[in-house]
Design a protein around this nucleic acid. Structure first.
Lengths: 120, 120
DNA sequence: TTTTAATCATTAGCCCGCTAATCAATAATA
DNA sequence: TATTATTGATTAGCGGGCTAATGATTAAAA
């Protein structure tokens, strides 16, 4: 007879449950202002520093390059960022927030605080 | 001047970081035995009780029906489950583990324990 | 200088979540 | 009984994560 783990009693199991629930919570809150969960984090970084390259953003968010690339397309779609190729290095593109993105900061902060309440 | 949140200092922000890191960790561990992160949880439930309907599994995992449906296709693909239509109710299908799925339990438990170590 | 290596962005394709919409079958009601 | 509502599975489509593979550009090395 092999040892049987009670998965439900493990930290990992509970953590896994929490993660999905929390991701849903972010999505629910941010959808109220027309955003998706992941997009917030890109905006946070760009509010701190505009004009990042994709690779910089990927590093700061600890995400893979294609993940960021796809996310940026979504942000361009809803008019929150623009991409501009660099003249000094034709490989990279720089990411710039639109005026709309700066305006949205307050709304995001509101939802973030509500999320914070729910999370506790 | 509007109040500016330091997102990095919020619980939600840190929790969000943890969620992605943890999901990656599950994926990394389970990929060693040819599984994906989400598939584990379906197996856990079916080890507890075989022959569930899709809707039952969805409820127990707190997942949407299409999510489960898609996941099951992946599990069929790697020969871990089979689906069988019910004769008493032609709407539902019952999910049955294959012998291979029962054999894999030990491997999964091993990886789960390693994951547990990493999570702490 | 020419070749090679490293860097950045991108595409393709997969898993894991979701919602909305559809279809078939069953249950409930008029 | 005939109609209507509910249920279960499925499809389509999207966001958000990943790896692998390409292509273009730049940097480094021979």
């Amino acid at each position: 007879m092999t040892s049987r783990i009670k998965f439900e009693d493990t930290v990992s199991y509970r953590l896994a449950k929490v993660t999905t629930a929390f991701r849903n919570s972010i999505e629910r809150h941010m959808s109220r202002i027309g955003l998706h969960g992941g997009q917030i984090f890109a905006l946070l970084e760009l509010w701190k520093q505009d004009g990042l390259r994709q690779i910089d953003l990927a590093n700061r968010l600890s995400l893979a390059a294609p993940t960021v690339n796809k996310m940026l397309k979504g942000l361009i779609e809803i008019n929150l960022i623009t991409l501009a190729r660099q003249e000094d290095d034709a490989r990279s593109t720089r990411i710039y927030l639109t005026p709309l993105a700066y305006k949205m900061r307050e709304e995001v902060e509101e939802q973030w605080l509500e999320l914070e309440q729910d999370s506790l």
